[in-house]
Design a protein around this nucleic acid. Structure first.
Lengths: 131, 131
DNA sequence: CTAGAAGCTGACATTGACGTCAGAGGCAAG
DNA sequence: CTTGCCTCTGACGTCAATGTCAGCTTCTAG
Protein backbone atom coordinates (compact mmCIF):
# COMPACT_ATOMS: atom_id res chain seq x y z
CA UNK A 1 0.00 0.00 0.00
CA UNK A 2 1.47 3.35 -1.03
CA UNK A 3 1.08 6.71 0.60
CA UNK A 4 -1.84 7.90 -1.51
CA UNK A 5 -3.93 4.86 -0.65
CA UNK A 6 -3.12 5.12 3.03
CA UNK A 7 -4.05 8.77 3.07
CA UNK A 8 -7.31 8.10 1.28
CA UNK A 9 -8.26 5.22 3.57
CA UNK A 10 -7.41 7.12 6.71
CA UNK A 11 -9.07 10.27 5.46
CA UNK A 12 -6.10 12.58 5.68
CA UNK A 13 -3.86 14.29 3.17
CA UNK A 14 -0.69 12.80 1.79
CA UNK A 15 1.14 15.74 3.25
CA UNK A 16 -0.10 14.87 6.71
CA UNK A 17 1.11 11.29 6.42
CA UNK A 18 4.58 12.48 5.53
CA UNK A 19 4.44 14.93 8.42
CA UNK A 20 3.47 12.17 10.85
CA UNK A 21 6.49 10.19 9.78
CA UNK A 22 8.68 13.25 10.13
CA UNK A 23 7.40 13.63 13.68
CA UNK A 24 8.05 10.00 14.47
CA UNK A 25 4.38 9.09 14.79
CA UNK A 26 4.42 6.63 11.94
CA UNK A 27 7.00 4.43 10.27
CA UNK A 28 7.14 3.13 6.75
CA UNK A 29 9.05 0.56 4.82
CA UNK A 30 10.67 1.89 1.71
CA UNK A 31 10.48 0.23 -1.67
CA UNK A 32 13.79 -0.35 -3.45
CA UNK A 33 13.21 2.93 -5.23
CA UNK A 34 12.43 4.87 -2.09
CA UNK A 35 8.66 4.94 -2.03
CA UNK A 36 6.89 4.53 1.31
CA UNK A 37 4.98 1.30 1.76
CA UNK A 38 2.41 0.58 4.47
CA UNK A 39 0.41 -2.30 5.81
CA UNK A 40 -3.27 -2.25 6.68
CA UNK A 41 -2.48 -1.63 10.34
CA UNK A 42 -1.15 1.81 9.53
CA UNK A 43 -4.62 2.97 8.59
CA UNK A 44 -5.74 2.52 12.17
CA UNK A 45 -2.53 4.06 13.34
CA UNK A 46 -3.18 7.23 11.39
CA UNK A 47 -6.75 7.39 12.67
CA UNK A 48 -5.51 6.97 16.21
CA UNK A 49 -3.03 9.77 15.78
CA UNK A 50 -5.79 11.94 14.39
CA UNK A 51 -7.92 11.30 17.42
CA UNK A 52 -5.12 12.27 19.73
CA UNK A 53 -4.65 15.45 17.72
CA UNK A 54 -8.35 16.11 18.05
CA UNK A 55 -7.99 15.66 21.77
CA UNK A 56 -5.57 18.54 21.77
CA UNK A 57 -2.35 16.59 22.19
CA UNK A 58 0.68 17.99 20.42
CA UNK A 59 2.74 15.87 18.09
CA UNK A 60 5.52 15.89 20.65
CA UNK A 61 3.23 14.52 23.34
CA UNK A 62 1.89 11.90 20.98
CA UNK A 63 5.43 10.95 20.08
CA UNK A 64 6.17 10.43 23.75
CA UNK A 65 3.11 8.28 24.19
CA UNK A 66 3.38 6.01 21.18
CA UNK A 67 6.52 4.09 22.12
CA UNK A 68 4.51 2.57 24.93
CA UNK A 69 1.82 1.54 22.52
CA UNK A 70 4.37 0.10 20.15
CA UNK A 71 6.84 -1.77 22.27
CA UNK A 72 5.72 -2.25 25.83
CA UNK A 73 8.72 -2.44 28.08
CA UNK A 74 9.39 -1.84 31.72
CA UNK A 75 11.33 1.40 31.36
CA UNK A 76 8.99 3.28 29.10
CA UNK A 77 5.74 2.05 30.57
CA UNK A 78 6.18 3.93 33.82
CA UNK A 79 6.90 7.23 32.15
CA UNK A 80 4.22 6.66 29.55
CA UNK A 81 1.67 5.74 32.21
CA UNK A 82 2.36 8.96 34.04
CA UNK A 83 2.10 10.86 30.80
CA UNK A 84 -1.21 9.21 30.03
CA UNK A 85 -2.55 10.07 33.46
CA UNK A 86 -1.53 13.67 32.91
CA UNK A 87 -3.21 13.81 29.55
CA UNK A 88 -6.28 12.11 30.89
CA UNK A 89 -6.57 14.80 33.54
CA UNK A 90 -6.07 17.53 30.99
CA UNK A 91 -8.69 15.93 28.80
CA UNK A 92 -11.19 15.70 31.63
CA UNK A 93 -10.61 19.31 32.56
CA UNK A 94 -11.12 20.34 28.98
CA UNK A 95 -14.32 18.33 28.72
CA UNK A 96 -15.66 19.95 31.87
CA UNK A 97 -14.84 23.39 30.51
CA UNK A 98 -16.63 22.66 27.27
CA UNK A 99 -19.69 21.39 29.09
CA UNK A 100 -19.76 24.49 31.23
CA UNK A 101 -19.48 26.66 28.15
CA UNK A 102 -22.28 24.72 26.50
CA UNK A 103 -24.41 25.33 29.55
CA UNK A 104 -23.67 29.02 29.33
CA UNK A 105 -24.68 28.94 25.69
CA UNK A 106 -27.87 27.13 26.62
CA UNK A 107 -28.80 29.75 29.19
CA UNK A 108 -28.06 32.45 26.67
CA UNK A 109 -30.32 30.78 24.16
CA UNK A 110 -33.07 30.33 26.69
CA UNK A 111 -33.04 34.02 27.50
CA UNK A 112 -32.96 34.81 23.82
CA UNK A 113 -35.92 32.60 23.11
CA UNK A 114 -37.87 34.15 25.95
CA UNK A 115 -37.05 37.62 24.74
CA UNK A 116 -38.09 36.65 21.27
CA UNK A 117 -41.40 35.30 22.51
CA UNK A 118 -42.12 38.41 24.53
CA UNK A 119 -41.27 40.60 21.60
CA UNK A 120 -43.53 38.58 19.35
CA UNK A 121 -46.35 39.17 21.83
CA UNK A 122 -45.67 42.89 21.76
CA UNK A 123 -44.74 42.79 25.40
CA UNK A 124 -41.80 44.91 26.39
CA UNK A 125 -41.20 43.65 29.88
CA UNK A 126 -38.55 44.51 32.39
CA UNK A 127 -36.25 41.71 31.34
CA UNK A 128 -33.09 43.66 30.90
CA UNK A 129 -31.18 40.51 30.02
CA UNK A 130 -28.98 40.07 27.04
CA UNK A 131 -30.82 39.10 23.95
CA UNK B 1 -9.98 51.38 34.67
CA UNK B 2 -7.10 51.19 32.22
CA UNK B 3 -6.04 48.32 30.05
CA UNK B 4 -3.46 46.90 32.41
CA UNK B 5 -5.95 46.60 35.24
CA UNK B 6 -8.55 45.02 33.02
CA UNK B 7 -6.05 42.49 31.73
CA UNK B 8 -4.91 41.62 35.25
CA UNK B 9 -8.46 41.25 36.55
CA UNK B 10 -9.56 39.13 33.63
CA UNK B 11 -6.39 37.09 33.68
CA UNK B 12 -5.24 37.76 30.14
CA UNK B 13 -2.42 39.73 28.59
CA UNK B 14 -2.66 43.37 27.61
CA UNK B 15 -1.91 42.25 24.09
CA UNK B 16 -4.95 40.01 24.08
CA UNK B 17 -7.25 42.81 25.20
CA UNK B 18 -6.07 45.00 22.34
CA UNK B 19 -6.49 42.08 20.00
CA UNK B 20 -10.06 41.54 21.16
CA UNK B 21 -10.86 45.16 20.44
CA UNK B 22 -9.21 44.84 17.05
CA UNK B 23 -11.48 41.88 16.32
CA UNK B 24 -14.57 43.73 17.44
CA UNK B 25 -15.13 41.60 20.54
CA UNK B 26 -14.69 44.43 22.98
CA UNK B 27 -15.15 48.18 22.93
CA UNK B 28 -13.45 50.86 24.96
CA UNK B 29 -13.92 54.51 25.72
CA UNK B 30 -10.85 56.59 25.08
CA UNK B 31 -9.45 59.15 27.49
CA UNK B 32 -8.78 62.63 26.08
CA UNK B 33 -5.22 61.50 25.47
CA UNK B 34 -6.19 58.29 23.72
CA UNK B 35 -5.88 55.69 26.45
CA UNK B 36 -8.46 52.92 26.62
CA UNK B 37 -10.82 53.05 29.58
CA UNK B 38 -13.09 50.26 30.76
CA UNK B 39 -15.86 49.66 33.24
CA UNK B 40 -16.16 46.70 35.59
CA UNK B 41 -18.51 44.93 33.19
CA UNK B 42 -15.70 44.48 30.69
CA UNK B 43 -13.94 42.08 33.03
CA UNK B 44 -16.79 39.64 32.65
CA UNK B 45 -16.88 40.34 28.96
CA UNK B 46 -13.26 39.35 28.53
CA UNK B 47 -13.80 36.21 30.58
CA UNK B 48 -16.79 35.31 28.44
CA UNK B 49 -14.78 35.78 25.28
CA UNK B 50 -12.06 33.59 26.72
CA UNK B 51 -14.52 30.82 27.40
CA UNK B 52 -15.82 30.96 23.88
CA UNK B 53 -12.26 30.75 22.61
CA UNK B 54 -11.70 27.77 24.85
CA UNK B 55 -14.77 26.21 23.32
CA UNK B 56 -13.06 26.38 19.98
CA UNK B 57 -14.95 29.29 18.47
CA UNK B 58 -12.97 31.56 16.19
CA UNK B 59 -12.88 35.27 16.77
CA UNK B 60 -15.01 35.75 13.68
CA UNK B 61 -17.70 33.46 15.03
CA UNK B 62 -17.60 35.15 18.39
CA UNK B 63 -17.89 38.50 16.68
CA UNK B 64 -21.03 37.28 14.92
CA UNK B 65 -22.49 36.06 18.18
CA UNK B 66 -21.83 39.02 20.43
CA UNK B 67 -24.13 41.58 18.78
CA UNK B 68 -27.03 39.46 19.94
CA UNK B 69 -25.69 39.47 23.46
CA UNK B 70 -25.19 43.22 23.32
CA UNK B 71 -28.27 44.63 21.66
CA UNK B 72 -31.11 42.19 21.33
CA UNK B 73 -33.16 43.02 18.30
CA UNK B 74 -35.49 41.17 16.01
CA UNK B 75 -33.20 41.06 12.99
CA UNK B 76 -30.07 39.78 14.64
CA UNK B 77 -31.69 37.40 17.08
CA UNK B 78 -32.82 34.98 14.39
CA UNK B 79 -29.44 34.74 12.78
CA UNK B 80 -27.67 34.64 16.10
CA UNK B 81 -29.98 31.94 17.38
CA UNK B 82 -29.21 29.79 14.39
CA UNK B 83 -25.54 30.43 14.86
CA UNK B 84 -25.78 29.46 18.50
CA UNK B 85 -27.56 26.25 17.63
CA UNK B 86 -24.83 25.45 15.14
CA UNK B 87 -22.11 26.10 17.66
CA UNK B 88 -23.94 24.14 20.30
CA UNK B 89 -24.04 21.17 17.97
CA UNK B 90 -20.37 21.55 17.14
CA UNK B 91 -19.60 21.78 20.83
CA UNK B 92 -21.58 18.66 21.64
CA UNK B 93 -19.87 16.77 18.86
CA UNK B 94 -16.50 17.89 20.12
CA UNK B 95 -17.34 16.87 23.66
CA UNK B 96 -18.39 13.44 22.46
CA UNK B 97 -15.17 13.06 20.53
CA UNK B 98 -13.12 13.96 23.55
CA UNK B 99 -14.99 11.54 25.75
CA UNK B 100 -14.44 8.81 23.21
CA UNK B 101 -10.76 9.61 23.08
CA UNK B 102 -10.59 9.57 26.85
CA UNK B 103 -12.20 6.15 26.83
CA UNK B 104 -9.62 4.95 24.34
CA UNK B 105 -6.92 6.28 26.60
CA UNK B 106 -8.50 4.52 29.56
CA UNK B 107 -8.54 1.21 27.74
CA UNK B 108 -4.94 1.74 26.76
CA UNK B 109 -4.02 2.41 30.36
CA UNK B 110 -5.92 -0.61 31.58
CA UNK B 111 -4.03 -2.87 29.21
CA UNK B 112 -0.79 -1.18 30.19
CA UNK B 113 -1.48 -1.69 33.88
CA UNK B 114 -2.32 -5.33 33.30
CA UNK B 115 0.82 -5.85 31.30
CA UNK B 116 2.81 -4.15 34.00
CA UNK B 117 1.32 -6.35 36.67
CA UNK B 118 1.98 -9.50 34.70
CA UNK B 119 5.52 -8.44 34.04
CA UNK B 120 6.04 -7.71 37.71
CA UNK B 121 4.86 -11.25 38.46
CA UNK B 122 7.31 -12.57 35.92
CA UNK B 123 4.46 -13.90 33.84
CA UNK B 124 4.81 -13.56 30.12
CA UNK B 125 1.32 -14.39 29.04
CA UNK B 126 -0.27 -14.49 25.61
CA UNK B 127 -1.59 -10.97 25.82
CA UNK B 128 -0.30 -9.63 22.58
CA UNK B 129 -1.91 -6.28 23.23
CA UNK B 130 -0.21 -2.95 22.99
CA UNK B 131 1.61 -2.02 26.14
C1' DC C 1 7.70 3.40 -25.49
C1' DT C 2 5.39 7.17 -23.77
C1' DA C 3 2.10 10.15 -21.39
C1' DG C 4 0.31 11.02 -17.23
C1' DA C 5 -0.51 9.96 -12.52
C1' DA C 6 1.75 9.52 -8.24
C1' DG C 7 5.99 9.85 -5.15
C1' DC C 8 10.18 12.01 -3.49
C1' DT C 9 12.71 16.00 -1.10
C1' DG C 10 13.05 20.59 0.25
C1' DA C 11 11.35 24.86 0.99
C1' DC C 12 8.26 28.56 1.50
C1' DA C 13 3.21 30.06 2.59
C1' DT C 14 -0.75 30.05 5.64
C1' DT C 15 -3.80 30.70 9.69
C1' DG C 16 -4.94 32.37 14.45
C1' DA C 17 -4.07 34.06 18.77
C1' DC C 18 -1.08 35.92 20.59
C1' DG C 19 4.43 37.53 22.10
C1' DT C 20 7.65 40.97 21.58
C1' DC C 21 10.06 45.00 20.26
C1' DA C 22 10.66 49.88 18.85
C1' DG C 23 9.83 54.55 19.25
C1' DA C 24 6.92 57.96 21.16
C1' DG C 25 3.90 59.93 24.45
C1' DG C 26 1.10 60.02 29.10
C1' DC C 27 0.93 60.22 34.13
C1' DA C 28 1.70 60.15 39.21
C1' DA C 29 5.47 60.65 42.88
C1' DG C 30 9.47 62.76 44.70
C1' DC D 1 11.70 68.48 36.25
C1' DT D 2 12.88 63.96 36.29
C1' DT D 3 12.27 59.12 37.03
C1' DG D 4 9.79 55.12 36.15
C1' DC D 5 5.83 52.80 34.89
C1' DC D 6 1.95 52.54 31.76
C1' DT D 7 -0.03 53.15 27.26
C1' DC D 8 -0.16 53.99 22.27
C1' DT D 9 0.52 52.29 17.24
C1' DG D 10 2.63 49.42 13.98
C1' DA D 11 5.10 45.75 12.62
C1' DC D 12 7.42 41.53 12.78
C1' DG D 13 8.11 36.79 15.25
C1' DT D 14 6.11 32.34 16.85
C1' DC D 15 4.14 27.74 16.80
C1' DA D 16 1.86 23.74 14.86
C1' DA D 17 -0.32 21.26 11.37
C1' DT D 18 -0.91 21.67 6.60
C1' DG D 19 -1.12 23.64 1.90
C1' DT D 20 1.45 24.37 -2.04
C1' DC D 21 4.99 24.66 -5.45
C1' DA D 22 9.19 23.23 -7.90
C1' DG D 23 12.09 20.02 -9.99
C1' DC D 24 12.95 15.48 -10.40
C1' DT D 25 12.04 10.29 -10.41
C1' DT D 26 9.06 6.24 -10.50
C1' DC D 27 5.21 3.59 -11.57
C1' DT D 28 1.26 2.29 -14.62
C1' DA D 29 -1.97 2.11 -18.65
C1' DG D 30 -2.39 2.15 -23.38
Amino acid sequence: MRIGDLAARAGVSVRSVRYYEEQGLLTSVRSPRGQRLYGDAEVERVRFVQRLYAAGLSSRTIAELLPCVDSPSRENSDAAMERMLQERARLSQHIDDLIQTRDTLDRLMAVAAEHHALQAAGTSSATHSTC
